[in-house]
Write a protein that binds this DNA or RNA. Structure first.
Lengths: 338, 338
DNA sequence: ACTAAAGAATGAATCGTTTCATGCTCATGA
DNA sequence: TCATGAGCATGAAACGATTCATTCTTTAGT
C-alpha cells in the first residue's frame, strides 16, 4: 500500500540509494537509470514524504510569517512580497495571524519552531520583544517586519513611522487645520505609537495647533466606523477639523461614518489622512490621502535579509545591513483638500 | 547540542517512553513524574521535532488551502474562516496562492501532498478538475471552495453564482438600464462563467436588453481600471448604461477610471454592481452595490466538511451533504441608483 | 596483460519521536 | 504465604528518506 523509495527501488531494479540520487542529484546518475527510476515513480505514484526528508536533514524548507491580520491589504501585500522572494529560494511560507495578541503570536512561533522553520518574519503584536529571545536563543532567527529593532540582537525591515506621522500631520497643518485628532489603535502597537510621536512633532512646530488622541481597540474598518460615529455625535464646534488615522482601514471606517448618516463633509468639515495607501484608498467616497509604505518590498526584503542571515556569516554583517529602514511618502488626494 | 527526548529522559531520570507519555498523555503519568520531566524540558529548552512526530504518525496536523489570490479581501475572509475552524480542531492551515494559474496550483497541491496534509481546500484556477484525480486517488481529499463539484467525486462548498449573476443584472434592468456590460475575468474561471450565465438569463427575460462581455485577464483593481479606461475612451453613445463586474476588485478599478479623468457619472451615466461585497464596497467613491457571499462561512464550512470526510465514514454520507450551496444576496447601494 | 582511476551502485546507519509488548513493584484478598 | 491485578516504567522497533563509506564495473594508460 505505502509506496516509498524502497518500493520504487524494487520496481526499478536498483537500490534505494540510487532512487534517492535520482530524486536529488539526477546529474550524477546515468540517463538510462534516471529514466527507469522515473518510470517506476510515475507508475507507482510515489510521493516523497517530506517529514522523513526533513527529519534527516534537520531543517525544513520553509520560513514562518506572523502578521497581525492578513485581512488587512497592507499585510496581504507584505505576504505576497515575502512569498515571492521565498519561492525564488525554493522555500515555502507558513502563515500565522496574531490578531495583535501576544499569546497567539507566541503560539504561532512555538509551532513554527516545532516545524523547524529556517526562520520567521514577524510583525510583533506588541513592544514586548523580550519573549522573543527564547526563540532566537534556540537558533531560530527572527526578522522584524514593519517594526524597527532596538539594538543589534534582531534584524529588521521597517519604515520610518515617526516620519510618516510627521508627514501626515504637517500636511494637514499646512492645509490650515489646527485641531487635529489622531485616531489610533492600541498604543502597545509600536507603529501606532511611533506615528503618534511624529504627529506630536508636527503639532509642536505650530504654536496654536492641538492634538487629540482617540484610541480604538483595533485597527479595523469596524473600529474606524465606531470612532467616526463617536465624533459625529459631538457638537460641531467640539469636533476636530482634521483626522489622522493610524491606518487606512480605520480611515475607511471613519469615512463611512462621516459620509452616511451624519452630514459631515470631507474635507470641508474634517480633512483626513490615512496610512498605508492600500489599493482601495484612491477609490473611497472621497479619495483618501495616505502615507504610502512599500508593503511588497517590505516582505520581499524581509525574506531576503533572513536568507542572508542564514547563508552568510552569522551575525557578522554590519549592524547597519541588518536594520533596514525605508522612507514613507505622502500621497495627497481629495480627503485632505489636496 | 541537540536536545531530544533522549536527553530529556536522561536529565529527568526516566525513559524516553515516559517523556513521550508526559508529552502526549500526561493523565497516564503520576503527577510527580510529570513535574520532573516538565522541569527537565524547560531546563534544557527541549522543542518537539514535528518532522519526527509526523513521520511516525504518518500524517501531519495541517490542511492546505489554495486560493487564486489572498490579496483579494474575499479570499482573505475565506482564509480566516478556514483558519478558525481548523484551529478548533487543533490543525494548522497551509496557504498557497495560485494566481489563477493551473501550474502554480498543481505545484502547491504537490507540495501539500509531500507534506502529507490531511486534505486541502481548493478554489480551482480553472475548470480542469481532471488533474485533481491524481491527488484524490492518492488519498488526499479535496474540498472545492466557491466552486461547485460536478458529480459525486469531490465535496464542495459553493455559492450559487448563476443566481448571483441573475440577481445583479435583474437589478440593473429593473432600474431601467438596457445596455449591460459584463466586465469579467478569464472565462476559464468557473465563477466568472457562471455569473455570466446568470447575467444572460436575466437579459433574456427582457426583450430589448443587450449584454456585452468585456473580458480581462485577471480579477484585479488594476484590470478594472484598464477596462474602465477602455470604456471611457468610447464615444458616449457607444457606452453601456450599466456595468456588472465579476468581482468588487474590478468594480473598484472601474470606479476609479470613471471618477477620475473621464467625466463619467455613476450611476447617472453608468450604473454598477459588483460581486463579493467586500468591506470596502460601502466606502467607495460611489458606494458600490454588490452581490454578497458568506465568505468567512465558506471557509469555515469547507474545513468542517473536510474534517467530516476525514473522521466520519468515508464517502458514504448522502451525496447531498457533500455539496453545500449557499445563496447570494444583493446589496443595493448608490452605484446602481439604489 | 595489468594497474589505476573513474564511474555506478549499494545498503547499513541515521535523524527524533511514538508505540506497544513486556517487566517490575506493590497492595489486596484468599 | 501466594496469586492477582493495577499502576508505572521500560526500551527496542518502526516510520521513510538521505548519506556515505564501500564494493563492483568499466575504461584508459603503459
Amino acid at each position: 500500500m505505502a509506496v516509498g523509495v524502497k518500493e520504487v527501488a524494487a520496481a526499478a531494479g536498483v537500490s534505494v540509494g540510487t532512487v534517492s540520487n535520482v530524486l536529488n542529484r539526477p546529474d550524477r546518475v546515468p540517463e538510462g537509470t534516471v529514466q527507469r527510476v522515473q518510470q517506476a515513480i510515475d507508475q507507482l505514484g510515489f510521493v516523497r514524504n517530506d517529514a522523513a526528508r526533513q527529519l534527516r536533514a534537520g531543517r525544513s524548507r520553509s520560513i514562518g510569517l506572523v502578521v497581525p491580520d492578513i485581512g488587512n491589504p497592507f499585510f496581504a501585500e507584505v505576504a505576497r512580497g515575502a512569498e515571492d522572494r521565498a519561492a525564488d529560494a525554493g522555500m515555502t511560507v507558513l502563515l500565522g495571524n496574531s490578531d495583535e495578541n501576544d499569546a497567539r503570536q507566541g503560539a504561532h512561533l512555538a509551532l513554527f519552531q516545532e516545524q523547524r522553520v529556517n526562520g520567521v518574519l514577524l510583525t510583533p503584536a506588541s513592544d514586548d520583544l523580550a519573549s522573543l529571545r527564547r526563540f532566537t536563543d534556540a537558533g531560530m532567527p527572527i526578522v522584524l517586519v514593519d517594526h524597527e529593532a532596538e539594538e543589534g540582537a534582531l534584524a529588521s525591515v521597517a519604515v520610518d513611522d515617526r516620519e510618516g506621522g510627521r508627514l501626515a500631520v504637517s500636511h494637514l497643518l499646512q492645509a490650515g487645520r489646527r485641531r487635529i485628532a489622531y485616531v489610533s489603535g492600541p498604543r502597545t502597537v509600536r507603529q501606532v505609537a511611533q506615528r503618534l510621536r511624529g504627529a506630536e512633532d508636527a503639532v509642536a512646530a505650530v504654536p496654536d495647533a492641538v492634538l487629540e488622541v482617540i484610541e480604538q481597540p483595533s485597527l479595523t474598518v469596524l473600529q474606524g466606523r465606531a470612532a467616526g460615529e463617536q465624533l459625529a455625535a459631538r457638537a460641531a464646534e467640539d469636533r476636530p477639523d482634521a483626522v489622522f488615522a493610524a491606518n487606512d482601514l480605520l480611515a475607511v471606517g471613519l469615512l463611512q461614518a462621516f459620509s452616511f448618516g451624519s452630514g459631515i463633509r470631507v474635507p470641508e468639515d474634517i480633512a483626513m489622512v490615512g496610512y498605508d495607501d492600500i489599493d482601495f484608498a484612491s477609490a473611497t467616497v472621497v479619495p483618501l490621502s495616505s502615507v504610502r509604505q512599500p508593503a511588497r518590498l517590505l516582505g520581499w526584503t524581509g525574506v531576503d535579509l533572513l536568507l542572508k542571515e542564514l547563508g552568510g556569516a552569522t551575525q557578522d554583517g554590519d549592524d547597519h545591513d541588518r536594520r533596514i529602514r525605508f522612507q514613507p511618502e505622502l500621497v495627497a488626494r481629495d480627503s485632505s483638500g489636496g
